[in-house]
Amino acid sequence: MPEDTVPWDVFPPTPKLDLSKAHQQGLAKTARGIRLWYAVFGIPLERTLRAGRVPVLLMHGGVSSSDWNALQVEFLAPNYTVIVLDLPGHGRSPFDDRELSYEKLAADVAGVLDVLKVPKVAIISWSEGTMVAWSMLAYGHHHRVDRMFAYSVLDDYRKADAEKVMGIWMVGEYFARTQREWEESHPGEKWDDFLGSWMKMWLREPIWTADTFKHLPIRGQSKDAPIVWVVTGDHDEWIPPETHDRVAKFIPNSSYLKMPSAGHLTFIQNPAMYHRMIECFLEDSNVVATLKASL
């Protein structure tokens, strides 16, 4: 690790979920037969749904697990129902499908919501979790998304500079750490098989443009439109810096937040600031529409 300790160059230990605080957990089997592990924390789900409120769904990054969002679970649980899940083959989820696509992954997440009988969620995601969250908007599941805090996304795999990214010291440390964690949770399985299946998808997807999302209802024009925050850090070297400037224009009336002194892993590097931002995001509302409706 470099001698300087600017916030975006610090790599804290992986947080761990306290599963003793989960109201429910297990494997949800989706309509297409994929099993995803999930857990529910905070305010009981039935109470949130009965009150007409929206649970929060936390989506983790590639080759990691829902444990990485443990600090967000702890922060949000006193006031929200918080759902976590592990993407296929990640964490506590078995690897049922090795021919991956973002369209399939979006359907799998929607399938977990079906099992839990949750009509809509507020998504807070980072990295690969954000790719899947955008996929829900792209591939016919936007009606399940009340709002989305989409931290760090890649809209076109051809615009990634993999060689440059792999030269970043923290990226190497990240893959080494996540491999150790994965091998602990998947004894007897081969990391190279798991990583290779995801790499195959990353070498052909996504290719998204504004046209990909033109079917979405627009905030301010439709009450069914999701609130979308496109979020990045001003020192996120893992993603080409112009990416989010481009993506922020994909959806009319979306919001664009560039967090200061923030890297790719700011949710564990500077959780206090990250939590203040997601609190603002969860409080965002269509105030003008509400005022008009009350007149």
Rank of each mutant, 00 (worst) to 15 (best):
P7S: 04
S185Y: 05
E163F: 08
S127R: 04
V112R: 04
D18S: 12
T266P: 00
Q24A: 14
L49K: 12
G89W: 12
R158S: 11
K190M: 10
A248D: 03
L116P: 04
V73K: 03
T5L: 09
A150C: 12
Y139C: 03
W208V: 04
F194Q: 07
G196S: 09
G52S: 07
A110R: 09
P271F: 03
H235P: 01
P252S: 11
P94D: 09
G172A: 11
T243D: 03
V115M: 01
L295A: 11
L100G: 00
W37Q: 02
Q221W: 01
R144H: 12
W37E: 00
R50N: 10
E242I: 13
V82C: 01
R204G: 04
A28Q: 08
G52C: 06
G52H: 09
I251F: 05
S101E: 02
V109D: 06
T5M: 07
R50G: 03
V153W: 07
R92G: 00
A122L: 04
G89P: 02
A22I: 14
V132E: 05
L58H: 10
F267K: 00
A51I: 06
P241W: 15
K120Q: 15
A51Y: 04
D18F: 08
I218G: 04
A150F: 12
A133Q: 03
D146P: 00
M259T: 12
H264P: 06
